[in-house]
Design a protein around this nucleic acid. Structure first.
Lengths: 204, 204
DNA sequence: GTCTATATCTTGATAGAC
DNA sequence: GTCTATCAAGATATAGAC
């Protein structure tokens, strides 16, 4: 559970190491496509040793998803506290989009696994993750309803989901080792805030 | 190859039926998670019979992806021809977003499989699909560069990818049996065109 | 806490009758 | 064109030594 705070050094042992290599393999190859042998190889141990730390492959995935959801939730509340109460709508949007994207790309793959691995996870594993996901969604719904009070609840939900879709798809095409995540956030927010329409007069 | 034009009647036989049930299973359960036995059950035949129509499970997926890409490309060019040359930028955007989303939700799951199944498909299968995907992306890049000429190539690429992410994520949360796909398209385009910023004066 | 060895099941794919 | 029967490989998981 304290994995995300630690540096991804190669001196990592046992349980934490299994979690990290498994998260990366699930993300790149998929859950069913990744065998325990592959995970064991990457963690430099034998398949049987994994069962000392986790009850099953499903339990391993479940914990990975937990850690990922915890990371984005923490990023959200941290961004909110840094903002102060006088922040403009656009500043709030910018801070939270940047926080989400930063968490998405922060060295571990726990958060990103939530995007592509979750939809195909075994039903039990998905169900266990739903409450945390709902909580996180509620944070965004609340924030968006404050900065765009004109939106009805349907449009609000749709905007949130489309924004999530746009942000989360970045795990598949954005190379965070080449570009800045904050620049990515700034561009997304700029487009979402002002739109694509030719700007006839700057409203700032 | 002519599958998408046919109605999804239960009188469907052999090859076409395999394609349709497999596409739906891959989409909901994932590729590796779906066995040939499961596909055979859903198609009401024996696993061995599938091999009379397809060389391998990979070949089956490959053809599903081909059909899906063909569907969206056809939708794009059809929308472009309906538009005429005097269409405004917003009208073009509206038509193509609606076309993409309609193709995404049109009875078969071939197109939607491209969103969630493709990333975890075997490397060979992915590689075979890349040229078609690049072609489709080029159509969008070209269209967006015309309606938003102010965007640099980096911002253009990012806008296209984020828009794709937003649209394609809808396969995971939009119930097209309850709401209208065209309404969904209208809302997405409205937000993308005008932005979330409080509107101080309508520029139409 | 990691290992060797193995049980048990499911997988994709093939052979050949009809 | 679909079937029965089966193979070989790989999967998750367990038992028990060290």
């Amino acid at each position: 559970m304290a994995v995300v705070e630690k540096s991804p050094m190669q001196t990592e042992h046992g349980r934490d190491r299994i979690l990290r290599v498994a998260a990366n393999l699930f993300l790149t190859k998929g859950y069913a496509e990744t065998s325990l042998r592959t995970i064991a190889d990457a963690a430099e141990m034998r398949p049987a040793s994994i069962y000392h730390h986790f009850d099953s492959k499903d339990a391993l995935l479940s914990e990975i998803l937990d850690i990922g959801m915890h990371a984005v939730t923490t990023a959200f509340t941290a961004a909110r506290e840094e903002l102060g109460s006088e922040a403009t709508g656009r500043q709030q949007l910018q801070a939270h989009v940047a926080g989400h994207l930063r968490a998405l790309f922060a060295n571990q793959a726990f958060t990103a696994a939530h995007v592509t691995v979750f939809p195909f996870a075994p039903a039990d594993v998905r169900a266990a993750s739903v409450p945390q996901r709902d909580e996180y969604e509620a944070l965004w719904t609340d924030m968006l309803s404050h900065i765009a009070p004109g939106l009805g609840s349907d449009a609000l939900r749709l905007t949130r989901l489309a924004l999530f879709g746009a942000m989360n798809s970045a795990v598949q095409w954005f190379d965070h080792t080449e570009g800045s995540v904050d620049d990515l956030a700034a561009t997304i927010v700029d487009t979402l805030w002002h739109g694509l329409a030719p700007r006839t007069g700057g409203t700032s």
